[in-house]
């Protein structure tokens, strides 16, 4: 059986990661930035799962770790949104480029 090679999964993960990175650095809306970061985490998860099957020593560990990563991503999304709400209440905006109180 000629399956899909490891490199295909890795390239897919790479492409998704790049898309997420670009989005995180370009988009103005904080929600979109957060979602882009989630996408990057997903790309990393794909790598973990792929290596758990096609790695040098295949084992279930990769999948377990991807579960941990998903958990952390969920926590991060929750906290990120809470920060977003607090910021929005103070600054009345969700645009990243207007949140420049670190200036000077």
């Amino acid at each position: 059986m000629t399956g899909v090679p490891l490199s295909a999964y890795l390239v897919l993960a790479l492409v998704l990661f790049c898309i997420g990175l670009y989005g995180a650095l370009v988009k103005r809306n904080v929600v979109i930035v957060l979602i882009s970061i989630e996408l990057m985490l997903n790309a990393a998860n794909i790598n973990l799962v792929a290596f758990s099957k096609f790695g040098v020593t295949p084992s279930i560990t990769g999948q377990v770790f991807s579960l941990f990563t998903i958990t952390i991503a969920a926590a991060e999304a929750a906290v990120g949104l809470a920060i977003l709400m607090a910021l929005y209440r103070n600054r009345k905006t969700v645009n990243v480029d207007e949140m420049d109180s670190m200036k000077h």
């Binding site: 929600v31 957060l34 989630e38 709400m85």
Partner: peptide, 30 residues
């Protein structure tokens, strides 16, 4: 990649929870 459990978790958490939370975030902010 023969990771059924992770796939289900992915659907539950990402497609379900996180997306909904994000939509809430969008709706709650102007």
């Amino acid at each position: 990649l023969s990771a059924e459990f992770v796939a289900v978790v992915q659907i539950l958490i990402y497609s379900g929870a996180i997306t909904i939370v994000m939509l809430f975030g969008i709706m709650l902010t102007k």
